[in-house]
Nucleic acid binder design. Structure first.
Length: 350
DNA sequence: AAACTTTCCAACCGCGGGACT
DNA sequence: AAGTCCCGCGGTTGGAAAGTT
């Protein structure tokens, strides 16, 4: 005997519609079989038949039971809604935690996850995941696919690479001496990327909070411990980096990714970088793991060699940039961009 | 209060794989 | 071995409710 719960949340869909809640417009396909929401009569026929005979062949069932539905629709209605052992209603905190843990191990294997939650269907769990749990993880700063801290800063690296390519194009549009400007931009951008990554992790180590109110400013106030860490251990100067931001706001305006720094400010759970900077990444690394051959250093070297504006210095420039720029992908994009925004002043780095 | 947007979830769709012929 | 059938799964859709402007 099928017993339906009386709470509104646990009512079958057609009962919801009686209460003035949801209702799907019924329809039928070319073969004349009915589609859309099930009526109470149809449910009763299906339940009565299965209780008497079992479902047997789903394909044969509709005809045998006298339903104008396809077997697939009958199976879905039974397994997701009419089965007597289905537990309906709100998921408990324990169930949600279990689903999150199982998802971390099994991924989107909803049926496998459902097998660990008696009375819950894969469809219900999938819906819960897509509407609630996914967002919950995102809010916690976790990637809902990998369950690891989010790696939005990789977007920043990509953005920076595009900016660097843009700087190169700008320099080719203008005076060769502007190469120095381009290289400075490159150096600064690389330093900025490095700082961003470090800052993310420093939140974990030193317990900084994200009280930054300026969405365009990636810098939050640092306490003395953090400032000391930057200076003493990394040889970076926070004030200089901040000035870089204020001096060259264009850096933050020319690409949409720069306008979403909240994501970058999200502290990670375990403080690990979790950044995939492997060669499999389609774009080459911007921040080298090796201090002997970092883009910063290379750019600085080139910069030093090209101080004389009379020196075309294009050979060195091309070599250096060519080491880590995806020219085809980025130049087309930025040439179009520059053509559209030719009155922008971002190329004129002082 | 009307218009618009977002959320929610039952139902549908298409595909892959196992069973059967 | 090859072809067909059927089932189960995961992704997506559609439309009403709920929320926001």
């Amino acid at each position: 005997m099928l017993v339906l719960s009386s709470s509104s949340k646990t009512l079958p869909r057609y009962m919801d519609s009686f209460a003035g809640v949801k209702m799907r417009t019924p329809s039928s396909d070319e073969s004349g079989l009915k589609k859309g929401p099930w009526s109470p009569e149809e449910d009763k026929i299906l339940v009565d038949y299965i209780q008497k005979h079992g479902h047997g062949s789903w394909r044969a069932l509709p005809k045998l039971a006298g339903l104008n539905r396809c077997g697939k629709s009958c199976r879905l209605r039974w397994t997701n809604y009419l089965r007597p052992d289905i537990k309906r209603g709100k998921f408990s905190d324990e169930e949600e935690k279990l689903i999150i843990n199982l998802h971390a191990v099994l991924g989107n294997k909803w049926a496998a996850i459902a097998s660990h939650l008696p009375g819950r269907t894969d469809n219900e769990i999938k819906n819960l995941w897509n509407t609630h749990l996914r967002k919950k993880l995102l809010k916690m700063g976790l990637d809902p696919v990998t369950h690891r801290p989010r790696t939005d800063h990789l977007n920043l690296l990509t953005s920076l690479q595009q900016i660097l390519a843009a700087a190169k194009i700008v320099s080719s549009y203008t005076n060769p001496c502007d190469i120095n400007n381009a290289l400075r931009l490159h150096s600064d951008a690389t330093q900025l990327a490095k700082f961003q990554l470090l800052q993310q992790n420093m939140f974990q180590v030193t317990g900084a909070t994200t009280s930054n109110s300026d969405p365009l400013n990636p810098f939050v106030p640092l306490n003395s411990l953090q400032d000391g860490f930057l200076n003493d251990v990394l040889g970076l100067n926070h004030s200089n980096l901040q000035n870089l931001h204020h001096d060259d706001n264009s850096l933050f305006q020319i690409h949409p990714n720069f306008q979403n720094f909240e994501a970058l400010q999200q502290p990670t759970k375990d403080g690990s970088l979790n950044a995939d900077l492997s060669p499999s990444n389609s774009l080459p690394n911007l921040v080298s793991a090796s201090p002997e051959r970092s883009p910063v250093k290379e750019a600085e070297n080139v910069n030093a060699n090209s101080k004389d504006c009379s020196n075309p210095c294009s050979t060195t420039f091309e070599l250096t940039w060519g080491d880590f720029m995806d020219e085809d992908a980025t130049e087309t994009y930025w040439k179009g961009f520059i053509d559209q925004h030719s009155n922008q002043t971002w190329s004129t780095v002082p």
